[in-house]
C-alpha cells in the first residue's frame, strides 16, 4: 500500500492508502479525524465537503491519492487559534443553523468557500451555492440566515 502524504489543517500527515481509498476514508479512518462525515454514495449530499488547496470538494468523491501533497482543510480546522468558534461557526450557533449536526461540517466548509469569493452574498446566491449540500433538519432557513449573518449582513428582516 502506498504511503499518501498531505497537509491537513496545517499539519503534515502521512498514512498508507489503497488505491481505492477515498479522501473521506483517509481522513476518518487513517487519521481518525471524524469531523468529516459521509452521507451518500453518489456525490449529492455534501456532508463530506472539505477544502483541497483552497477549493471546496466532496471528500467522498476524490481518492486520497489524488490529494497527495495537497493542503486540506476540514471542519476541525475552522475554529480560531484559541479554540473558540470561528466566525462562520459562531453564526451557525447564533442563528440555530444546525440541529442533528451531521450535515454541519459540510455546510460550514461550503459557507467558508462561498464567503471567500463573495463577501456579501444575496439570499439567492447562498441558496444556489448550497445546491450540493443537503440538510434534512433545518429546512435551510437558519443555515441561509447564518451564512448571511456571517458575512456581516443584517438578516433580521430578510429571514423573519
Amino acid at each position: 500500500m502506498a504511503q499518501v502524504k498531505m497537509t491537513v489543517n496545517g499539519k503534515a500527515v502521512s498514512a498508507p492508502a489503497e488505491g481505492r481509498m477515498l479522501l473521506s476514508t483517509y481522513l476518518r479512518e487513517a487519521l481518525g479525524m471524524t469531523g468529516t462525515h459521509v452521507g451518500c454514495d453518489t456525490g449529492q449530499c455534501g456532508v463530506c465537503a472539505v477544502h483541497v488547496d483552497g477549493k471546496l470538494v466532496k471528500s467522498c468523491n476524490m481518492f486520497a491519492a489524488e490529494a497527495e501533497g495537497a493542503e486540506v482543510t476540514t471542519v476541525e480546522g475552522m475554529a480560531n487559534e484559541d479554540g473558540s468558534l470561528g466566525a462562520i461557526q459562531q453564526a451557525f450557533q447564533d442563528h440555530h443553523g444546525l440541529q442533528c449536526g451531521f450535515c454541519t461540517p459540510g455546510m460550514v466548509m461550503a459557507a467558508s468557500a462561498l464567503l471567500k469569493v463573495n463577501s456579501k452574498p444575496t439570499e439567492a446566491e447562498v441558496r444556489a451555492h448550497l445546491s450540493g449540500n443537503l440538510c434534512r433538519c433545518t429546512g435551510y432557513h437558519n443555515i441561509v440566515k447564518a451564512i448571511m449573518a456571517a458575512s456581516g449582513q443584517d438578516v433580521a428582516v430578510a429571514a423573519e
Binding site: V75, H96, L98, G101, F102
Partner: peptide, 21 residues
Amino acid sequence: NKRREDIRFLTGKGNYTDDMN
C-alpha cells in the same frame, strides 16, 4: 438560549456511531 451541543457539532467533535471503532 443558544445550543450548547452546537459547539461539538461545529468543531467536528461530535460522536456519531460511525465515528466509533
